[in-house]
């Protein structure tokens, strides 16, 4: 299977979706002529023209509002928010409008809109260009949230997100953009809400998503040397998330670590842990341990950011604790 960069898979998904459905259009800052700040939308303007690929002014509230209003009027907009941090300026349209429209209007309408937002640190971009805010959106009824960890899932989840009748936030980790992984010649949609086992193992389940999947796999290699065999479970979708798969993995390993790049407190991991402490209680042989960023804004200095971002060594330590 050919290996492609994550970014290429994102681009391909947008291209294929626009090709099969005229109602799909792309809007965002510098997404058209410049091909996107990270080049995710490169070539779309040339192929589909200015009537389907819109360079928006720096105006996140109306970018999100355009997605909402156009979705209400029969289109399938895909909006890009340049850095997930900037989504704060679009919150009313996402949280009060997009998320609620279907329920609040009694099921009259579906809002098939997608918001793509790159999250995460590793670029020394500082406190306002590095945040992982996915838990906010997972907390809002009416939104779906996905966070693909590799090229095939980026392709597949973006296709599913665009096809989905409801608003989907697609969170892409910036440090993954250049990473290569396998993408079949005929890539397929990946259903929203289904996790995957990235590495089977017997001793401890590590539930994670996004760029932390890579860290968990590195941790797995290190732990093998110690004779510990971890199972890496990539959630892929955060809202809805695949509780059944987590429970069944836990039923095999009886030990659980939940890891994400986002701040640990009140994060996605807290939800997973709370559910497993309930429905998975009988399976647990050890306390559940979370791995996440400390409760501080993402710092700038190289030394500080490196210490701030959770990595394979943090996962290794957490796994050892569950076995202690």
């Amino acid at each position: 299977m050919p290996e492609v960069r994550y970014l290429k898979a994102v681009n391909q998904a947008l291209y294929d979706a626009m090709e099969v459905d005229d109602s799909v259009f792309v809007i965002g800052e510098d997404v058209a002529a410049a091909g996107g700040p990270f080049k995710a939308t490169r070539g779309l303007l040339e192929t589909f023209g200015p009537g389907r690929v819109y360079d928006a002014p720096i105006a996140e509230a109306v970018i999100a509002g355009v997605a909402v209003g156009a979705a209400m009027t029969g289109m399938r907009p895909v909006a890009e928010i340049m850095f997930m941090d900037f989504i704060t300026l679009a919150m009313d349209q996402i949280v009060n409008q997009a998320a609620k429209a279907r329920s609040m209007f009694g099921g009259q309408a579906s809002l098939p809109l997608v918001i793509r937002a790159p999250h995460g640190g590793g670029l020394n971009a500082g406190p306002q260009h590095s945040q992982c805010l996915e838990a906010w959106f997972a907390h809002v009824p009416g939104l779906k949230v996905v966070c693909p960890a590799n090229a095939a899932d980026a392709y597949g989840l973006i296709r599913s997100a665009i096809d989905d009748p409801d608003p989907v936030i697609v969170v892409e980790n910036k440090t993954l953009y250049a990473a290569k992984s396998e993408l079949p010649d005929d890539p397929q949609a990946v259903p929203i809400g289904k996790a995957t086992i990235s590495r089977p193992g017997r001793d401890v389940t590590v539930v994670t998503y996004g760029a932390m999947v890579r860290e968990a796999l590195t941790a797995a290699d290190q732990l093998t040397i110690e004779g510990v065999d971890i199972e890496v479970l990539d959630l892929r979708s955060i809202q809805p998330w695949d509780e059944a798969m987590v429970v069944s993995s836990l039923a095999r390993t009886h030990r659980l670590v939940v890891a994400h790049e986002a701040v640990e407190a009140f994060g996605v991991g807290a939800e997973v842990v709370a559910r497993m402490a309930d429905v998975g209680f009988d399976e647990l042989d050890a306390p559940i341990i979370r791995v996440g960023a400390p409760f501080a804004p993402s710092p700038f200095a190289k030394s500080l950011e490196a210490a701030y971002r959770p990595d394979a060594s943090d996962i290794v330590r957490a796994v050892r604790r569950t076995l202690a």
Partner: peptide, 17 residues
């Protein structure tokens, strides 16, 4: 709409469509 001003961005999107 319960949010003052929120109809404007929605209408802008509807007009684009």
């Amino acid at each position: 709409n319960g949010i003052v001003g929120a109809g404007m961005p929605i209408t802008t999107g509807s007009a684009l469509a």
